[in-house]
């Protein structure tokens, strides 16, 4: 697989999104793994990369000059996010609530506000047994990690297969994470819960017109509402991975299964071929 960008999504955490992205990146000949789940980045726990660089991510933050501010409170009234308050003759700013829209500066009649940089997190890059690993880390309590995701995606480079581990759900951070994806892999569990959450993310992909397939994880004999959803909505099922105690144990200890076991390696190599084929077909179908 050359140069394709594959994104991994799920409606909820714990479905095995990171497990799939990490193991597939580990069997690809030349891979970049990008962890866009910036609130809970777990991919690096598996890869344990030697970090080679890090970069802090900033967003604009208003600053007030108390000598110029006359307390008109126009900025307090304008701010849609309640990031500003006025008490005891001083302007109080709540950094984590500020979206950096710049509106407060625009409404200030006295130019008492200007903007500085505020750190909201960082990105780190390194390697792990031939895989380039790039992770984003959002500071706890920050409103949004969209700017970190944007910055992460500029690091992909060219010529490699890119594996994007998206945040769970269908938030704007997910929309941002899949922007450049050639193909999306939905990961779901074989339950009514799984099918309900699958539907939510699938809707998002339809909105952005992204080709996609599903991997059903932790399958067992019997009913599978997620499979039924896929069949009913024409989502190709790329694999059904059975529940496997050994996989569960490796995964819970943050070990990469394909690096521990030949059988798992072959399983993931086959899955990668399947995804590659689907992605190529989709590209042909699209053009």
């Amino acid at each position: 697989m050359k140069g394709k960008t594959i994104a991994f999504l799920s409606g909820k955490g714990g479905t095995g999104k990171t497990f799939l992205a990490v193991n597939l990146a580990s069997v690809a000949p030349s891979a970049v793994y990008i962890d866009c789940d910036v609130e809970e980045p777990n991919g690096h726990l598996f890869f344990r990369p030697a970090w080679q660089y890090s970069r802090t991510i900033h967003v604009p933050l208003p600053q007030v000059d108390p000598a110029v501010c006359n307390g008109c409170r126009k900025c307090v009234d304008f701010c849609a996010f309640s990031a500003l308050a006025w008490a005891n003759g001083q302007l109080i700013l709540f950094e984590a609530l500020c979206h950096g829209c710049g509106g407060c500066m625009m409404v200030c009649p006295n130019q008492a506000l200007c903007e500085a940089d505020r750190e909201i997190g960082e990105i780190k890059g390194g390697t792990s047994a031939g895989v380039r690993v790039i992770s984003g880390f959002l500071k706890p309590g920050e409103a949004t990690g969209v700017s970190i995701v944007k910055s992460l995606l500029t690091q992909a480079g060219s010529g490699c297969s890119v594996f994007i581990d998206c945040p769970p759900g269908s938030s704007c951070m997910v929309s941002e994470s899949i922007r450049d994806a050639d193909y999306c892999v939905l990961v779901a569990e074989p339950t009514r819960f799984g099918a309900h959450n699958l539907n939510m993310v699938h809707e998002l992909l339809r909105l952005y017109n992204k080709p996609c397939g599903a991997v059903l994880n932790k399958c067992q004999p019997g009913e599978d509402p997620s499979r039924d959803y896929c069949l009913h909505h024409g989502v190709p099922i790329l694999a059904r991975i059975p529940f496997d105690e050994r996989l569960g144990l490796l995964n819970s200890n943050a070990q990469i299964a394909v690096r521990e076991d030949k059988g798992y390696r072959e399983m993931f190599q086959a899955l990668l071929l399947r995804i590659d084929k689907e992605a190529c077909d989709a590209a042909v179908g699209h053009s």
Partner: peptide, 13 residues
């Protein structure tokens, strides 16, 4: 709608 954060700056200008 997906990207709009509701800040109101566009309405202002």
């Amino acid at each position: 709608d997906h990207s709009c954060e509701g800040c109101g700056v566009c309405a202002l200008v």
